[in-house]
């Protein structure tokens, strides 16, 4: 079945100048795009993307950070206990120090992964806010007020992906 706007434009076309007809056609196309976008926004709600999936993914990531933090503290507890054994094991003392040092160094993974996950969470919250805004524009009935996350001023971007950052030796060169 032909859509009403197309029929109207087809009827009007005969009485309009070529420019006006072209503009009307453009408006008709824009109307279709808006209509499609609105349908997609409504579909987002049906899929629960903004109300369920994204918040849930954000919570899961926060839990990963909490669990790894707790595990890291447990590892550090054990490591500190090992250090107390150094005096009791003079023969293995040096090896014990080396091993505990390696564990301390490795535990820094939690800070790095925590920062990377925080970046992903920020991205998800931004997507969630954008979806909320789109819903408010296209489908006011289903719109939910989602505050847009604001990045604290003067903070850095956190760990960089390989290739996006300079190395420690390159930084050292700036201080030599």
């Amino acid at each position: 079945m032909p859509d009403n706007s197309s029929v109207s434009i087809a009827h009007l076309r005969g009485d309009l100048t070529a420019t006006a007809a072209s503009l009307l056609q453009e408006l008709d196309s824009l109307g279709r795009i808006v209509s499609t976008a609105r349908a997609e926004v409504v579909a987002l709600r049906a899929e629960g993307l903004d109300e369920d999936l994204i918040p849930s993914a954000t919570d899961e990531l926060a839990e990963i950070v909490n669990h790894t933090a707790q595990a890291t503290h447990d590892i550090l507890d054990a490591c500190e206990q090992l250090e107390t054994l150094q005096a009791a094991t003079p023969d293995g003392s040096e090896a014990l120090v080396a091993a505990t040092t390696r564990i301390y160094e490795a535990c820094a993974f939690q800070d790095i992964t925590g920062q990377r996950i925080a970046k992903v969470v920020s991205a998800l919250q931004l997507i969630e806010a954008r979806i909320g805004k789109a819903k408010a524009s296209f489908a006011p009935v289903v719109a939910a007020s989602v505050p847009e996350p604001t990045a604290p001023a003067m903070l850095l971007n956190g760990p960089q992906l390989p290739g996006n950052a300079i190395s420690q030796s390159a930084i050292d060169a700036l201080f030599d």
Binding site: Y104, Q115, A165, Q168
Partner: peptide
């Protein structure tokens, strides 16, 4: 964890004595 050149330079200009990128070792 930040190692972008402009930030290292900003820290240096502010008077930082040295700069270590995480993760690092003892």
């Amino acid at each position: 964890a930040e190692s972008k050149t402009e930030n290292v330079v900003a820290a240096k200009q502010a008077g930082v004595s040295n700069y270590i990128v995480k993760p690092f070792n003892a």
